[in-house]
Design a protein around this nucleic acid. Structure first.
Length: 804
RNA sequence: GCCGGAAUGAUGGAAUUGGCAGACGUGACGGACUCAAAAUCCGUUGGGGUUAAACCCGUGUGGGUUCAAGUCCCACUUCCGGCACCA
């Protein structure tokens, strides 16, 4: 009789063995076929590991372990994305150095991850806050600067007037500071920007060559937001450059009845002497500055705006005067910051026109009365009231109008992107210092490459300064330096990089993490890149994933990496919710601590449950009883050691189920359908229990299949039953397709689509024979008799008899 | 608001991608074992209906396409992720 299944002993034993055998370390043998799976490296928060982390980690661990068993050289790395806001906020509150906080949190996370038995290559651990790491983050920034992709711009930040600190959007709740409730204002600061927009088209085009799940591709494309249209200039007396607008619907130019500029538009200042209601305009600008873009562009909110009295533009297609308004639903960051409004055919313009009683002119016929209802369905309309466009369909009208505008020199064809350049600076201490100095004489000057890394200076006080600069501004000795160019006095940048910086290239460092000459050697990059399979959360689709693709493309352009794309394949897991179906959070009190689960039922049960709980790509509520069910399954597997029989190989009656299980599990792992793979192994175990015995070969196959999910218990059982080699050195099993063929097929017989009977027939009968048998079947007869059989359809194992 | 997902028994989910809805797990109920309980093993479990069967209803709501719809199309409802300084 077997001993009790003691998960603590089994798991500790095998974790030690694996570590001593170094069996999960990637080999430097570049002749082997390689496989590089990747999970998003965690941010080591003080809360410790979240049950969400192991979901992605286990999924890729399964693939990593399977690939090793298939003979691949696997690099499955881990590291820490450790710069960030919460750590700094904690330091501000407690006075503990962020480096110390980070170190403690990393130690906590490392211990928790190790306890879960992931087959990470711990010898390649990286940490973004390590100067030997961020040396290369700074190096990339300098390269971007050198190539003209980093520039300064005046960009507003959220500023708490009471804490005197720049706030992340997340820290602004209902317009006030999350921490102190103080008033938040927009404060303009000069910030470093990265020209991601220069890569917009390639970031769209190159999605065709990679294997990302479709929703990721769609979301990235929509985020980049390419549109084709025209820029049209509306002349304004006293404003020589005219008011330039971007439109995708230049066919509707004859229907433009007013124009709108965003509150930040330079026109307002330039025309301030002509504008007769300047006080009202200024007040409106001030009001708008308080709102986020998000609040401003909400469609269902009440439209606001103020006319620019004294300013009149001219519609260039018909020379009609057209009023200009300022309204916050127009954003300076998109297009030209000004629009022509065609209320008859745009919902927001229509609402605005109705509210302020502006004229509405129909130019596309096909809807109802445009005075009462907006008409936006462009596919079905024909142009009216539009001079030379009358009678044309919308798409032909657009083409004709663009030609006309270009010929007349009024407008030009223009591709526009919603994507905006990346604001790359934070008024924070706990980030990578920007390796530039400002010299009175020479302007911004990069520090020489030999001086990298530019190390974060030690400071005593992490409180931000009164003007919204980071605590770095207190490190006056560090700030004061000399200009590398002229040798004169210069000052360092006191803003730091956002935490997206370190995470935009970490997968490159894993290829060669200890290199102090390059970010990674050419040979290592050529062998390991691209990442073969990257799994992570949907929430990173438009920021991290896009930013890292952008950096990678830049590095490719300067010859630093061998591939134009960093990731060959991208998949995504669903979030694990609390038992009540809500997002896990401290405040909701529904947080599940992985340590508690592991202590109660072991890492294997925990891993198994996370893979079994539901569809991998869907959000799923946690269930403690569900997890216990997985523990119960492992105990059933444990007791199979008492059911071993003396049969050799795979017994005849198990042939089908064993082969089917190998196929099902192999294919489902690859498709990330872990839940159904596990369900099939449960079915196989249920079968064995019914039979009461199992051969050694069958048991060994089961253990091999299960080992990527529950590696500790499988290794232990494998050893207990006397296998010569550990499972991690065992080859992945194959299946015999011919063993899956059934001798007979059960057909479901439908009459008019409703199931009426079943019939078991030998396999290989042709359709006519099946049809005949089905029509003669007893249960079916009453539904067919006395009726005319119109048609009989035999598909797969369904016979549908259509009668009338 | 915009972009992307999702909705199936009491419950988490499955369904060969248009072909017998509910695999597998949880819970519940019944049985075996036990002095008893726990654990374990075996069985039942969508709703209505029937002694039993037949049969009827059933995949968020309303319409549609099809021999056949959880799956495709149209219109809605609710929930989840993202919206550029959380990571």
């Amino acid at each position: 009789m077997s001993q009790r299944y003691d998960h603590d002993a089994v798991e500790a034993k095998w974790q030690k063995k694996w570590e001593e055998a170094h069996c999960f370390e990637a080999k430097d043998d570049y002749t082997m076929p390689k496989f590089y799976p990747l999970i998003e490296f965690p941010y080591p928060s003080g809360m410790g590991l979240h049950v969400g982390h192991p979901r992605s980690n286990t999924a890729m661990d399964i693939i990593a372990r399977k690939r090793r068993m298939e003979g691949y050289n696997v690099l499955y790395p881990i590291g820490w994305d450790a710069f960030g806001l919460p750590t700094e906020n904690y330091a501000i509150k407690t006075g503990v150095h962020p480096r110390k906080v980070t170190e403690d949190n990393v130690n906590l996370f490392r211990g928790q991850l190790k306890r879960l038995g992931f087959s990470f290559d711990w010898s390649r651990e990286v940490n973004t806050t390590d100067p030997s790491y961020y040396k290369w983050t700074q190096w990339i920034f300098l390269k971007l600067y050198e190539k003209g992709l980093a520039y300064k711009a005046e960009i507003p930040i959220n500023f708490c007037t009471s804490c005197k600190v720049g706030l992340a959007n997340e820290e602004v709740v209902d317009g006030v500071c999350e921490r102190c409730g103080g008033t938040v204002v927009q404060k303009v600061r000069s910030q470093w920007m990265l020209k991601i927009t220069e890569y917009a088209q390639r970031l769209i085009d190159d999605l065709d060559g990679v294997d990302f799940i479709e929703r990721v591709k769609i979301q990235q494309k929509n985020w980049i937001g390419r549109s084709e249209g025209a820029e049209v200039v509306f002349p304004i007396e006293g404003y020589p450059e005219g008011l330039k607008v971007y439109t995708t619907r230049c066919d509707t130019l004859f229907g433009a009845t007013y124009m709108v500029v965003s509150p930040e538009h330079p026109l307002i200042d330039a025309m301030r002497d002509k504008i007769t209601n300047m006080d009202a305009v200024r007040a409106y600008q001030k009001e708008a500055a308080r709102k986020s873009d998000f609040e401003r562009s909400e469609l269902n909110k009440e439209k606001t705006g103020v006319p620019l009295e004294g300013v009149t533009a001219v519609n260039p297609v018909n020379n009609q005067p057209i009023p200009v308004w300022v309204a916050d639903y127009v954003l300076m960051g998109y297009g030209t910051g000004a629009i022509m409004a065609v209320p008859a055919h745009d919902e927001r313009d229509w609402d605005f026109a109705k509210k302020f009683n502006l004229p509405i002119i129909e130019v596309v016929a096909g809807g109802k009365n445009v005075q009462e209802e907006v008409f936006t369905d462009v596919a079905s309309g024909v142009l009216v009231n539009s001079d030379f466009l009358n009678g044309l369909e919308v798409k032909d009208a657009i083409a004709k109008m663009i030609d006309w505008l270009e010929k007349k020199g009024i407008g030009t064809r223009k591709v526009n992107y919603k994507l905006r350049d990346w604001v790359f600076t934070r008024q924070r201490y706990w980030g990578e210092p920007i390796p530039l100095v400002h010299c009175e004489k020479c302007g911004w000057v990069p520090i020489p490459y030999e001086e990298l890394p530019l190390v974060l200076p030690e400071i005593e006080d992490y409180q931000p300064t009164d003007d919204g600069s980071s605590a770095l501004a207190r490190a006056t000795d560090w700030i004061k330096t000399t200009c590398p160019h002229c040798g004169g006095p210069a000052e360092r940048e006191t803003d730091t990089m956002p935490n997206w910086a370190g995470s935009s290239w970490y997968f490159l460092r894993y290829c060669d993490p200890h290199n102090d000459k390059e970010l990674a050697s050419k040979e290592a990059l050529e062998y390991w890149m691209p990442v073969d399979w990257y799994n992570g959360g949907m929430e990173h689709t438009t920021l991290h994933l896009l930013y890292s693709r952008f950096w990678h493309k830049f590095l490719y352009d300067i010859g630093a990496v061998p591939t134009p794309e960093p990731y060959q394949k991208r998949t995504s897991h669903g979030m694990i919710l609390g038992e009540n179906g809500e997002k896990m959070s401290k405040s909701r009190g529904n947080v599940i601590n992985p340590d508690d689960v592991v202590a109660e039922m072991g890492a294997d049960s925990f891993r198994l449950y996370e893979m079994f709980m539901g569809a991998f790509d869907q959000p799923i509520p946690w269930s403690t009883t569900g997890a216990r069910g997985c523990r119960r399954f492992l105990e059933r597997v444990w007791r199979l050691q008492d059911m071993l029989n003396d049969a050799d190989g795979i017994t005849e009656d198990m042939k089908r189920v064993v082969n089917y299980t190998v196929k099902k599990v192999s294919e489902d792992y690859e498709a990330m359908k872990y839940n159904t793979a596990i369900a099939q192994m449960m079915t196989m175990v249920n079968d064995i229990y019914t039979k009461g015995s199992i051969s050694r070969t069958e048991f060994h196959i089961l253990l091999t299949l299960l080992s990527p999910v529950a590696p500790h218990i499988c290794e232990e059982l494998n050893e207990l039953v006397g296998s010569a080699e550990p499972l991690y050195e065992t080859a992945w099993p194959t299946w015999d397709e011919s063993a899956l063929v059934e001798d007979s097929i059960e057909y479901g017989i439908q009459v008019n689509g409703r199931i009426r009977g079943r019939i078991l027939l030998p396999a290989g009968m042709d359709k006519a024979q099946v049809e005949e048998k089905a029509l003669a079947q007893e249960d079916v007869k009453p539904f067919v008799e006395g009726k005319t059989v119109r048609k009989v359809i035999v598909v797969k194992n369904i016979v549908n008899i259509v009668v009338a």
